[in-house]
Amino acid sequence: MRKLYLDDYSDTMTIRELADSQGVCTKTAREWCLRQGLDSYKVGNTRRIRKEVLIAWIEAKEAENRLATQQTSINS
């Protein structure tokens, strides 16, 4: 499987496109949408994710990780 860049996709992505772009399985991508706070919506039977929402979600997760790392360093 070839890892694709977000520029290769339209402004909205399916679960499969999300999974392919991030190098994870579709189950993980669906979990992100349903339980991990990645906003998505349904069109018929297909869940869609706006690319700009994905980018903001990734940036927020990165910020959380940086904060957790800093707090761990301070407490050690």
Rank of each mutant, 00 (worst) to 15 (best):
I49T: 03
T26C: 00
T26G: 01
E31F: 04
A63R: 11
S40Y: 01
R47T: 12
E62F: 06
T46A: 04
R35T: 12
R66P: 01
W57L: 03
E64D: 13
W32G: 00
T46V: 15
W57M: 02
K27H: 08
C25F: 07
T28N: 01
A68I: 05
E31I: 07
Y41F: 15
Y41D: 07
R35Q: 15
R35S: 14
K42I: 08
R66M: 10
K61V: 08
K27E: 10
T26I: 06
R66I: 11
S40I: 02
E62L: 11
A63F: 11
K51F: 06
A29M: 02
A29Y: 01
L34Y: 14
A63L: 07
C33Y: 01
K27C: 06
D39P: 05
L54S: 06
Y41A: 05
A56Y: 06
T69P: 00
R35E: 15
G37H: 05
T46M: 09
T28L: 12
R50F: 07
K42G: 04
L38F: 02
R30I: 01
E31M: 09
E64Y: 06
I58T: 13
N45E: 10
E59Q: 12
V24I: 15
K42E: 08
T28H: 09
K51V: 08
R48T: 06
N45K: 13
R30N: 13
A60K: 12
I49Q: 02
A29N: 00
K27W: 04
G44K: 06
L34P: 03
T28C: 03
S40D: 01
R50H: 13
L34M: 10
K61N: 13
K51C: 07
E52Q: 15
L34F: 09
K61G: 09
Q36K: 15
A68G: 03
Q71W: 06
I58D: 06
E64N: 08
L38S: 05
I58W: 04
I49H: 02
A56K: 11
V43Q: 08
A29L: 00
E31N: 14
L54N: 01
V24A: 07
C25H: 09
I49C: 01
V43A: 10
G37P: 00
I49W: 03
Y41N: 04
A29K: 02
S40K: 02
R47Y: 03
V53P: 00
E64L: 06
S40G: 10
C33E: 02
I55Q: 10
K27Y: 09
A60Y: 10
D39L: 14
A63W: 07
I55M: 13
L38I: 05
D39V: 15
V43G: 04
W57D: 04
L34H: 09
K61H: 10
W32M: 05
A56L: 10
E62Q: 14
I55R: 05
R50E: 14
R30E: 12
Q71R: 06
E59H: 04
T69R: 11
I55N: 05
K42R: 14
E62A: 10
T26V: 04
V24Y: 03
K51D: 07
R35M: 08
R66H: 07
Q70M: 09
N45H: 08
Y41G: 08
R30K: 14
K27F: 10
R48K: 14
S40A: 12
T46P: 00
R66K: 12
K27V: 11
R50D: 13
V24C: 06
Q36H: 14
R66N: 12
R66L: 10
C33H: 03
L38K: 02
E52H: 13
I58E: 13
G37C: 03
E52N: 11
L34V: 12
A63P: 00
